[in-house]
Amino acid sequence: MLKKLMLALPVVAMMSGTAFAADTYPERSIRFIIGFGAGGNADTVARLLAEPMSKDLGQPVVVESKPGAGGNVASDFVSKSDPDGYTIQLMVGGHAVSAALYNSQPFDPLADFTFLSTIGQFPFFVAAQAGAYENIEDLIAKAKAAPGTIKIGHSGVGSTQNLTGELLDLETGADFIHVPYKGGAAAATALLGGEVDVVIDTGTIMTPQQDAGKFDILAVSSKERWPDKPDVPTLAETVAPGFDVVSWTGVGMPAGVDSAIADKVRASVHAAIADPDVAARIEKLGAKPSPMSGEEMRTMVEQQIETWKKVVESAGIEKR
């Protein structure tokens, strides 16, 4: 009996230590890692959350940029960080794209992370110069009638925008020429200058030009019409039944974080998103606030990885 009790003591001690750590967490500042440069959308979203989370958790949440390789530098750093709850990451839809596009990565995009929650979801819009096409059906019909003549611009080879365009080709039978640019703003400028005929990108890129009367937004990539553009038809209801592409931002941590700590950070993320001012600013960035459970987020990422793998293979995109 005494022997059994002595054997059990280390286990009890470990459990007590874990519980104590979760109860007192956090006791110091938390690093909020982003994989892109300062001033971009990822940086903006991270800072939107950092302030209310700092107040809620009682410790500073400090945004730290580790740009490179489409966010993979940051993901690699986070995946190898101590799972003590003091390193969190702003994850983006490109996390799933990279998993499909790279032959190998220094981390497992699923197993090496604790997924906490999405922050916001956003679709992509198909836009052309004002008056160039009657509607999305007209664009696709002309693309199919003259294969390899209509140019579609996007924000770089391997970007989610690029793969969305490739999926549009596959789903409609159109044969666009895909032209990469260094970001959505550059692609929009190319459309304004007539270098390309169509652009696929976010509402934050497209809306100012639409408001100025320079772009017509022909369709949206989400399965349902987007709330702030209810007059824009979906690709699913027009030329590509079942088409549904929605990108996202979210929060993750290294794998192995104590579940009680993960729950505490997730609750803080959800509380921030629920704040009307934060939600309004997320919406201003073209996204819809969308808190999820960790399991829901993980399932979504897993499904997107499989979708993009099929697109990369079918479109013959060279893996890196």
Score class of each variant (00 low, 15 high):
M1N: 14
M6G: 04
L7G: 13
P10Q: 08
V12P: 08
F20D: 13
D23P: 02
Y25Q: 09
I30P: 03
R31P: 04
R31Q: 15
F32H: 01
I33N: 08
I33P: 02
I34C: 00
G35R: 01
F36W: 07
G40Y: 00
A42Q: 14
V45R: 01
L48H: 03
L48Y: 07
A50H: 11
A50W: 11
M53R: 06
K55T: 13
G58F: 08
V62N: 09
V62R: 08
E64D: 14
G70Y: 02
V73P: 00
S75T: 11
S75I: 07
V78F: 04
S79M: 02
K80F: 09
D84M: 05
D84S: 07
G85K: 03
Q89R: 10
L90C: 04
M91W: 06
H95C: 07
A96G: 05
S98T: 10
S98V: 02
A100C: 04
D108N: 15
A111L: 12
A111H: 14
D112M: 07
T114V: 08
L116F: 10
S117V: 08
G120V: 10
Q121L: 13
F122I: 06
A128W: 01
Q129T: 12
Q129E: 13
G131K: 12
A132R: 12
E134S: 15
N135P: 06
I136M: 06
E137C: 03
A141M: 08
K142S: 11
A143N: 01
A146F: 09
A146S: 15
A146D: 15
P147Q: 06
T149F: 03
G158W: 00
G165F: 02
G165W: 00
L167K: 06
L170K: 00
V179F: 09
P180F: 05
K182S: 15
G183R: 02
A185Q: 14
A185S: 14
A188P: 01
A190P: 08
V198M: 02
I200K: 00
T202W: 08
G203F: 03
P208V: 09
F215K: 05
F215D: 05
I217T: 11
I217S: 01
A219I: 01
S221H: 01
S222R: 01
D228L: 12
A236N: 12
E237L: 03
F243C: 01
V246E: 10
W248T: 08
T249C: 09
G252I: 15
H270S: 09
I273S: 01
D277R: 12
A279N: 09
A280L: 11
K284N: 12
L285K: 10
K288F: 11
P289W: 10
P291H: 07
G294R: 03
E295Y: 08
E296P: 03
M297T: 03
Q304E: 14
I305E: 06
I305Q: 06
E306M: 11
T307Y: 07
W308C: 07
W308F: 15
K309E: 14
V312W: 01
S314G: 13
A315H: 06
I317M: 13
